[in-house]
């Protein structure tokens, strides 16, 4: 993605995470995680399964409370906010969940229009028009909008999830493994849609993935998470010349290397 020109160089970060720690019982998942995401930038967090990628997103969203550390959005600390202020922050954020997490008790367009109707109290007919327009942006017809989410294929569900994430014109969009479970072609199409939608909305994007092809297409900057810390952060072009043995092993999918996989010990 070449959006470098639009990203202000000197601006303060949109999202700042400082020394964030989170443990579940004795299992330490985040162990001093740091991240700056500049406005309009697309940052991808890579890392193996179970390295705390999802946990980092959930901490920013307020779905999980970090044990310690600091998270700022637009320079405002968001940990310990009241429910009301928290909702105001979340209103700026859109999220595409791994399996799209569509509400299966309502139709596709009602899913897309969810924030508009429930959050902003918009009239259903108007919200429906906007939902159909957003569905159009992700390449789905109005006829799909009337269906039930259970009737959709994996790729379509991702598209609907994307339409729902951008429906509220968010400042920030999170993508949780956007290509997982899709074939490579559909994965590529979703990546292109993500890049297009993020650019149209003018949002800051934070993606977690272990699909390297996807990361190369989406990212301005990449950070690698290993054992709860970011061990390497740089521009996407540097990915292949990182000089970091962990990154080298991960990017190239090598079975041999410094990365400590519990399964290999047995």
């Amino acid at each position: 993605m070449t959006r470098t020109a639009t990203a202000p160089v000197q601006a303060s970060p949109k999202i700042a995470m400082r020394n964030v720690k989170k443990a579940f019982g004795s299992k330490v998942v985040l162990d001093g995680f740091d991240l700056d995401v500049m406005p309009g930038e697309s940052v991808v967090i890579i890392g193996g399964s179970g390295t705390g990628k999802s946990v980092s997103l959930k901490c920013i969203l307020g779905l999980l409370n970090p044990d310690s550390g600091e998270i700022d959005i637009d320079g405002q600390p968001i940990l310990g906010l009241s429910k009301q202020d928290r909702d105001a922050v979340n209103a700026k954020i859109g999220m595409l969940f791994q399996n799209a997490a569509l509400f299966d008790s309502i139709s596709v367009w009602e899913n897309v229009a969810f924030t508009l109707v429930q959050g902003e109290g918009m009239a259903r007919s108007k919200a429906r028009d906007i939902a159909m327009e957003k569905l159009g942006q992700v390449g789905l017809s109005a006829e799909i909008g009337e269906r039930n989410p259970a009737q959709l294929s994996g790729g379509m569900r991702k598209r609907v999830g994307l339409a729902r994430a951008i429906a509220g014109d968010p400042d920030i969009i999170f993508f949780d493994e956007p290509t997982t479970g899709l074939d490579p072609i559909m994965g590529h199409i979703i990546d292109k849609l993500i890049v297009k939608c993020v650019r149209e909305v003018g949002a800051t994007a934070l993606t977690i993935t272990h699909d390297m092809a996807s990361a190369r297409r989406i990212a301005d900057r990449v950070t690698m998470l290993y054992k709860g810390k970011n061990i390497w952060t740089d521009r996407i072009e540097k990915l292949d010349s990182s000089g970091n043995p962990y990154v080298h092993q991960f990017v190239n999918g090598l079975a041999e290397g410094p990365i400590d996989l519990p399964i290999l010990k047995n």
């Binding site: 429910k83 909702d87 209103a91 969940f97 997490a101 569509l102 509400f103 429930q118 959050g119």
Partner: peptide
């Protein structure tokens, strides 16, 4: 079963990110 499925398929998390309180909804 319905709310449990919503929990394990992240639909309840999605509700919160869409600024809707699951208790209310």
């Amino acid at each position: 079963a319905e709310i449990g499925t919503m929990r394990v398929t992240e639909q309840i998390d999605a509700l919160e990110t869409l600024s809707t309180n699951p208790f209310k909804y």
